[in-house]
């Protein structure tokens, strides 16, 4: 069996930049993963539905708008509602350490990758967690 790691990278909320998330997408692709990109400005409901249709192992959330404390818990809540809580959730973008800690501790996020993260750290993290 040839199992491949599938990742859905998404941009919830209103921010209009996807350079960062696309760089991560390319790194994951180059590491042999299948990366599906959502495009900008998606509602949480639609993102969760898309992640379910694509049956991904990983949901990667990129947020630069500052709305992470509202949007990320909403997304993980929806995943639980849909019975998809086994999906690994990671997030990146501009998320202060204090918020990051809360998201990981209380909202089911596996790991937050702050600005300046080396893409190889994300690759290694996913490869390790999905072994």
């Amino acid at each position: 069996m040839d199992r491949k790691i599938r990742v859905f990278l998404c941009k919830p909320g209103l921010d209009g930049h996807d350079r960062g998330v696309l760089i991560v997408g390319q790194a994951l692709r180059d590491a042999g993963m299948e990366v599906i990109y959502s495009g900008l400005k998606q509602t949480s409901e639609n993102l969760v539905e898309a992640a379910i249709q694509e049956d991904v192992d990983v949901l990667g959330i990129s947020l630069l708008s500052g709305a992470h404390m509202a949007l990320i818990p909403r997304i993980t809540e929806l995943l639980v509602e849909r019975g998809a809580e086994d999906m690994l959730v990671i997030a990146g973008g501009v998320i202060p350490p204090d918020d990051a800690e809360v998201l990981v501790r209380e909202h089911g996020v596996a790991r937050i990758f702050g600005p300046g993260t080396n893409t190889s750290d994300i690759v290694d993290f996913l490869a390790e967690r999905l072994k």
């Binding site: 491949k4 997408g25 390319q26 994951l28 692709r29 180059d30 590491a31 042999g32 993963m33 299948e34 990366v35 599906i36 990109y37 959502s38 495009g39 898309a50």
Partner: peptide, 11 residues
């Protein structure tokens, strides 16, 4: 690499 970037959903 065996990887792929699947961007059709964007459209």
């Amino acid at each position: 690499t065996g990887g792929a970037l699947l961007g059709d959903r964007v459209r």
